[in-house]
Simulated assay, not measured.
Amino acid sequence: MHSNNPVPSETSAPLQDSILQYHALSKLLAEAGISQPTLVIDQAALNRNIAQLKQILNEGFVHRLVVKSLPCMQLIDHISAQTQSETQRFMCFHAPFIQQIASRYALSDILLGKPLPAAAFEQLLVWFMQQPKSKSAPKLSQVQWLIDSHARLEQYQAIAKKHHASLRINLEINIGLHRGGFSLNAEFEDTITLLEKSNNLRFAGLMGYEAHAAKIPSILGGLKGALDASWHSYEAFKERVEHLSVPGTCFNSGGSTTFTEYTAKAPCNELSV
């Protein structure tokens, strides 16, 4: 919407600045003939945020871009170009996003942000296998399929066998959020054994989300205390899969509310933001 109302003289300077910016933006939208709800990005502020992220990445991390938060391919291009190297890493949550990213970025590595139901997984698997065999076409090898339970892994293995497919498997681990994922127990041991013996499944890494850390009150240790506990849990999982790990294995963590606290002592090698 736009308005021709003047700025009240009694308002504070910061508020006056905001109102003036609002009127200027409103004028630009009107001149462009844009009257529908529109998302506007402050590119200068965005670039300052990117610069802050790059300072953290210099601690020894790579960046995985969370696609669901960025509803615009040009915006994804802009951030990826400034924060990523040859391999473009993305976190996707739904099939249409996975298909778009895999089609747009031939060198992309896509980690799912949540496990897909078996039926949805099979549909997407078939889509990948039907793509042309060309260098720039989407490939099944671009995807790390997120698994949160032994039962789901058995479902995926049966589907992979049916289609003679080879899958990269990333295990979601519970490091304190308790939204799901593996604990260090017999189920996790059974899952590791299945991965070791399978001809269709290959261990690709771990994903531990710690969004709860930013909400822990200071009397209970606050953000830093919660992160320390999460990192300790993550290390225990890493030790259990050490024999399956190779250079480049994905150890993913982080989030937009926590990434600023990450240092070289963190157990992960990439941050999702």
Rank of each mutant, 00 (worst) to 15 (best):
M1W: 02
M1F: 03
S9P: 07
E10T: 13
S12I: 00
S12V: 00
Q16S: 13
Q21L: 08
Q21K: 12
Y22A: 15
A32T: 03
I34Q: 14
T38E: 14
A45N: 05
R48K: 12
A51L: 02
I56Y: 11
F61S: 04
H63A: 09
P71F: 04
P71H: 07
P71Q: 06
P71K: 09
Q74P: 00
L75G: 12
I79G: 05
S80E: 12
Q82I: 01
Q82M: 08
S85T: 10
Q88R: 13
R89G: 05
C92S: 15
H94W: 04
I101M: 15
R104I: 09
K114F: 07
P117V: 09
A120K: 15
V126N: 10
Q130S: 13
Q144T: 02
Q144R: 09
I147N: 06
H150N: 08
A151E: 13
Y156K: 08
Q157E: 14
H163V: 06
H163I: 03
A165N: 02
L167M: 02
L171V: 04
I173E: 02
N174R: 11
I175G: 08
I175V: 14
S183T: 02
N185Q: 10
A186M: 02
T193D: 03
L195R: 13
L195A: 09
L195F: 06
L201M: 04
L206F: 09
M207A: 12
Y209H: 10
Y209V: 05
E210W: 02
K215S: 14
I219V: 12
I219T: 10
S230N: 04
S233P: 01
R240C: 01
R240Y: 00
R240V: 01
G248F: 05
T249P: 05
C250M: 11
F251D: 08
G255V: 07
S256F: 01
T257M: 03
T258K: 11
Y262M: 07
K265N: 15
A266S: 12
P267K: 05
C268H: 03
C268T: 03
C268K: 02
E270D: 13
V273R: 07
